[in-house]
Design a protein around this nucleic acid. Structure first.
Lengths: 349, 349
DNA sequence: CTCCTGGACGGTAACGTTTCCAACGCTTTA
DNA sequence: TAAAGCGTTGGAAACGTTACCGTCCAGGAG
């Protein structure tokens, strides 16, 4: 016989029935006590509470959620790579808000492809979560329309469904960054774009709008669409664009990872165009040239989403779908305040 | 009457009973088809599957988990600040492994105090999760002993309970870092310690062991216990120790956040002692002086934990509690390879 | 004194699934 | 030909909770 893990006596967890028996009351009474205890005499409630303590009873949330109408006290959160501080911040802050209301947060397994996302969402729905917070990938989300579960989209809207959405002012942020560079006298500004997310398109729109407002034409060869959204792709693209005959004097990186790639390339090249990134990141102020960024309150993004969803789930909020847009601000640290250099004075050493 | 959100017709989700009726079979048959479909004639199974598709039936996981013995297909993960890349990496990687087995991961609300952690864990247990992954705070975890749920501790052991644990070789890592500095000729090495977590104690042990092996006494005034584990505390402590009459020639920062604080202080002071950090972090290679760190495979930490827990939960693994220790490696980037300077040649400019 | 009201409480159905058992039809074996 | 075996199927119990309904008793009104 193989040596087995000495599993504890496997104590069956006590149920309400056990508590009722112990306290010498009926099942309904225990239930009433557990849920606030209205309509129970004080003395009886005492006895019940004593029995609960003695037995170490804990309500079985699964059984509770089975009752019709009763939703579970869990919210679902579907997002991309948790390793990205952006997503991690959303997770943390929404978790905090949910936790304060006694809700747990279920993380769906997050694949990259839209099909995987759909599968993950449906698994979450089958777990009877009270609501869904989704940072949607591309792909249609119409299948959520009749799911009977409130949904809040975070950071970007989804197609095929009209639901609450909490996001940042991407276009405003894009304009803010570009305005800032234009104000320094830059006229050749490159923008690096991660693959076509909604947010990126909006940031580009702000970029164009700023140019238009300043009466400067956008050089379309400086609008650079990357094949991937990671630092490596940005590094490669930056190297290429800076080695052109007519390099830009400033670069606007449309995501935090892209900013990282841009800086890495510039460090190797020894060139110093102005740089502004979208979204702040840790250590941005400690790099050789501290990085100027357009930033928003990402934590508030998560908090708002969770709050809204909780209100929807409880039925307290029956307004038509809301659209919450958080503002962006500029954090000047140095890299975005460099003046343009003419081609002649490139390569300082 | 207030304007109300046009809630969809609130379509009741179809149940197995609906499917059975539609397919003209019994309830049990539908259940059998849904779970692999053994012991059902092919033709019957076809009919059932057709009905499932037509109705868009999805199994109710809550009802499923209610049956005795059946655990839910969710794992719980309890950890600290998701904003810390260390925790975020654990979350991501364990989520991946769990997802591959069709398990969701429930994140407990994570307070800082031990009492909050206990409450969070019990809430998770009441949700009938199949297993718990816990990065334990201080405080006794004996209350988990008889909970009847498998538990895997991550990164550090808990007191009061003998359970599986997956961690990194903290003592080895501490020794590795210190050996490296000693090998450069440093004899006055400061170590910054975050509040007394188990891991930190082990790293200190490695620090001392390295000194002993080298025949060098540890200057106890350079063993600096910080009141908090954040970058600010480390920054302050670094400033103080570097302004002493006899500053260290090297600093070992025992966590990623502390490393950040150390670098921030050094940048302001304009001093350049050697620095080695524990745990790698993003952009460590892009700082003015790239940072040498002792690192381990944090993602593997999460993966191992999830794998182990899934095996325990399925009953496939009945070995006595396991102790998995992952190795640490040194990543040389520059900051840890600076030679010691005598006090006289301090302050280069 | 009787009737009625209302608060406190007990019992039971129901939620949607899994699992067990019985029943049925068919084939194989004695 | 009857019995036994097997694969397939239907039906019902059970999981732990909540919600509803009825009962009981005390106290006030008529």
């Amino acid at each position: 016989m193989p040596e087995t893990f000495p599993t504890k006596p496997e104590v069956a967890r006590p149920t309400m029935i056990d508590v009722a028996r112990r306290a010498g009351v009926g099942l309904g009474t225990v239930s009433r006590v557990v849920n606030g205890g209205h309509g129970v005499r004080d003395e009886t409630a005492q006895r019940v509470r004593a029995a609960i303590d003695e037995l170490g009873f804990q309500r079985n949330e699964v059984a509770r959620a089975l009752r019709p109408g009763k939703k579970s006290t869990s919210l679902a959160l579907v997002l991309g790579d948790l390793t990205n501080p952006f997503y991690a911040t959303i997770a943390k802050s929404s978790l905090e808000v949910a936790g304060q209301s006694g809700f747990a947060v279920v993380l769906g397994s997050v694949d990259e492809d839209p099909e995987g996302e759909k599968r993950a969402i449906q698994e979450l729905v089958s777990r009877q979560v009270a609501g869904l917070m989704i940072v949607p990938d591309q792909g249609d989300h119409a299948f959520l329309q009749g799911a009977g579960v409130p949904v809040v989209f975070v950071d970007r809207p989804a197609t095929g469904i009209d639901a609450d959405i909490v996001m940042v002012d991407n276009e405003g942020g894009g304009k803010l960054a570009t305005d800032h560079l234009l104000a320094q006298g830059h006229e050749r500004i490159a923008i690096l774009l991660a693959p076509s997310y909604y947010t990126i398109g909006r940031r580009l729109r702000g970029f164009r709008r700023a140019h238009r407002a300043a009466g400067i034409d956008v050089d379309e060869s400086l609008v650079i669409q990357l094949p991937e959204g990671n630092a490596e792709a940005a590094e490669k693209a930056t190297r290429e664009v800076m080695l052109r005959a007519d390099p830009p004097t400033a670069i606007f990186a449309s995501t935090n990872f892209l900013t990282e790639g841009v800086l890495r390339a510039l460090g190797e090249l020894g060139q110093e165009p102005a740089v502004v990134g979208f979204d702040d990141f840790r250590l941005a102020d400690m790099l050789p040239t501290p990085v100027t960024v357009v930033a928003s309150d990402i934590a508030e993004l998560g908090r708002s989403a969770a709050r809204l969803l909780l209100d929807r789930a409880s039925g307290a909020d029956t307004r038509p779908p809301q659209r919450i847009v958080l503002p962006c601000g500029l954090i000047e640290r140095g890299s975005g305040e460099r003046p343009p250099r003419s081609a002649g004075e490139r390569n300082p050493r």
